[in-house]
Write a protein that binds this DNA or RNA. Sequence first.
RNA 1: GCCAAUAUAGCUCAGCUGGUAGAGCAACGGUUUCGUAAACCGUAGGCCAGGGGUUCGAGUCCCCUUAUUGGCUCCA
Length: 635
Amino acid sequence: MINITLKDGTSKQYPKGITVGEVAKDISRGLFRAAVAGKLDGETVDLMQPINNDVQLNILTFDDIEGKKAFWHTSSHIMAQAVQRLFPDIKLAIGPSIDNGFYYDFDTDRPFTPEDLEAIEAEMTKIVKEDLELERFEMPRQEAIDSMAEKGESYKIELIEDLPEDSVISFYRQGEFVDLCAGPHVSSTGKVKAFKLLSLAGAYWRGDEKNKMLQRIYGVAFPKKGQLDEYLNRLEEAKKRDHRKLGRELDLFSIHEEGPGFPFFHPKGMVIRNILEDFWRKEHVKRGYEEIKTPIILNQDLWVRSGHWDHYQENMYFTNIDDGDYAIKPMNCPGSMILYKRKMYSYRDLPLRIAELGLVHRHELSGALHGLMRVRCFTQDDAHIFMLPEHIKDEIVGVIDLVDYFYKQFGFNYHVELSTKPEKAMGSDEDWDLAISALKEALEEKNMEYIINEGDGAFYGPKIDFHLEDSIGRTWQCGTIQLDFQMPERFDLTYIGADGDKHRPVMIHRVVFGSIERFIGILIEHYAGAFPTWLAPVQVRFLSITDRSNQYIQKLAREFEDLGIRVETDLRNEKIGYKIREARLQRIPYMLIIGDKEVESQQIAVRSRDEGDLGLMEVEDFIDRIKKEIKQKGQ
RNA sequence: GCCAAUAUAGCUCAGCUGGUAGAGCAACGGUUUCGUAAACCGUAGGCCAGGGGUUCGAGUCCCCUUAUUGGCUCCA
């Protein structure tokens, strides 16, 4: 007999060799039905897995992340099986589960069509009905390679060859389909009750653009039909808050064929932009930053000196002035260097925090452009902090606090990544190690969780990135803090130390919004277009019942404007319901409805976007209310 | 840049296997002066993304270009 400790801490005796599934069945039939996999001492395993010694066991259902992974992994096998039945000539590459479903990559000369997806789905339905059991088995390395060679599965051979010498090479079989796979999997194909293939895409083998492009099919699957419907519904809802759609409907910005990746900001979009910038300026002054503005075009020699010519050229635009070669800035730092060098600094002047809202241009691949999130020109809310080595940690902590303060203001959740030295980098490994440990130290002092992104740093230094989520869960890098020992060296920056000698300062590059454009895109999706009053392009719209109230409205509107409240009037000869509908579609925080009654009593009828009809109010009371709300910035 | 899909009026979309472009909303003109999410009638609006081809005839078929979308790669 063996002792099995369950999730709730209780332990039970079972005969040696009992399977995970049998334990689940012993606990309850319901749990057995919901079970998709198990977790033995932290390792996820199949339900068929026998247990031979005392362990801690968790029964995983679809509600567990690892359970979902197993479920989706099996779904990807079902899809691959269907594809192989319909298109026997295809080669299998890889088919993992992902955060929201699964995919499988196939190699075939014949491109899949949307009709193929339907046929594949139909075949998958059959496989699910066949309720094929999944069976795990292992093979010695050479045998595994031979067996894959026999099937012509060259990608699988490559995968096996890359496995470490001592690793167990396991396969899963369901009916006639066999795939190299570490597992775990659900016990039979019949469990995958509801699924949908979502999209077709090209994907490079092993994510390397030098490799062949394979065809990837994405899908999702659930144990119940209702869950699938709910998921698809959520996707539909998310599409409604897409910033590209709302940007058009709310008249905030547009992008035209004449300037792919170069967004135009409309008057209402500019209101949001200007408010963000005002807020930004105020907070930066408070924290000891000074603001500068450097030119967009600077001569090519500067970019050679900064290292951009060697490391960033393919992302830059170039131009020519009077036979001289110039570049359009892709970053603000070299301009900031020039300003630092304009005079001498004492160690007492440092740290020096120099901020710049700088418009940069970068050549992004056409296929990468995406609304305001990925553009070819954007404004960075940049700053360069020049400092002594002993300032490093405090300055980084200061920036982390600033970023956190900003993101909290908008109610964002974010996650942090630390990126290390890339292949194409300047500087010695020692410098990089020093810089990386400084960043780590700051993160640890703030008790921040972070993931490490190996080789993803900027060419001049490692960075801490702050990532925000869009409406469908994709994350976008916004804030970043980059520690740089290289630029000060390249530009021979100095300060005079207490010893009277020249010393080299260290610098930080950092942004908080990241790109104002991207940040606005994320804000639009975050609020689904319903901006809090302090950010709303129009805060109040007056709606007339009849034209008898026009004069009163115009008088009030002028008063509100004088108080700095952003107002619009709708005096059209339309029914009130129609005007309310339009104002609601524009997500305007307050509608003030003015008819004969209001003119008579010199009051206003207030309708709030969030709370509905608030009834009659004194004008003064409403002004107090909205002013307070604006001051609180939606907190 | 690569793979795939898409491109019809300001917006959302019809237009079947080729026979000469249509709706709703918006705009404009009129009627209606109305109380909390869409009044009524009328008018105008399109080089069907651009270019080339096949055909007696192309929005529909083919090719090229551009842009967009979903991915891959890259990144704020």
